[in-house]
Lab assay of single mutants.
Amino acid sequence: MSDQEAKPSTEDLGDKKEGEYIKLKVIGQDSSEIHFKVKMTTHLKKLKESYCQRQGVPMNSLRFLFEGQRIADNHTPKELGMEEEDVIEVYQEQTGGHSTV
């Protein structure tokens, strides 16, 4: 019986991991920090939209990076291997420009 009891508790931990929340720091170019608590399985588009709304800027005017890689709207913290207190960097999107060649 103890084996049966242990097995469901392991499964519960697996389920808990799926719905687990982590805190992420979003740091802007001006070094301002906003902290977000997100589920591991939530699409990061929600975090990006919330950040842009707080900053009063359109979402397409900023780019969000985690460990140097651009974050897509459909990425989740779990897919990117994010952990508690990880940092997302935000930069002004640069458009235009010309070749110097």
Rank of each mutant, 00 (worst) to 15 (best):
V38L: 12
E5C: 00
F64Q: 07
K16F: 11
N74Y: 14
Y51W: 15
V26E: 03
E83K: 14
I71A: 01
M59W: 05
K17Q: 12
L13E: 08
Q92P: 10
E79L: 11
L44W: 02
G96I: 01
N74R: 14
A6M: 15
K37C: 01
E33P: 05
V90F: 05
G81A: 13
T42I: 05
E49V: 08
D73T: 04
E5Y: 13
Q92V: 14
L62D: 03
K45A: 13
E79I: 06
L80D: 04
H75I: 07
E67A: 08
L62P: 02
I22G: 06
V87P: 02
S9V: 11
C52N: 02
E89F: 10
K46M: 05
N60Q: 06
V38P: 01
Q29M: 05
I27W: 14
G97W: 00
P77W: 00
L62G: 01
K46A: 11
G96M: 06
E79H: 00
N60A: 06
T76N: 01
F64V: 02
V90W: 01
F36I: 04
T42W: 01
K17P: 10
D15K: 10
R70C: 09
E5P: 14
S31M: 00
V57N: 06
I71P: 03
L44R: 03
I22R: 07
M59V: 14
D30F: 04
H75A: 10
A72K: 00
F64A: 05
S50Q: 15
T95Y: 00
I27P: 02
N60D: 12
D12W: 00
Q4R: 12
M40S: 11
D3A: 09
D3Q: 08
L44N: 01
P58E: 09
L13A: 14
K25V: 10
M59L: 07
K16V: 10
R70H: 15
P58Q: 07
E93N: 10
K45V: 10
Y91S: 04
L47Q: 02
I27G: 03
T95F: 05
Y21N: 09
C52I: 00
F64N: 00
N60M: 04
L65P: 04
T76K: 01
R70A: 09
S31V: 01
T41G: 08
N60F: 07
S32D: 04
K25W: 01
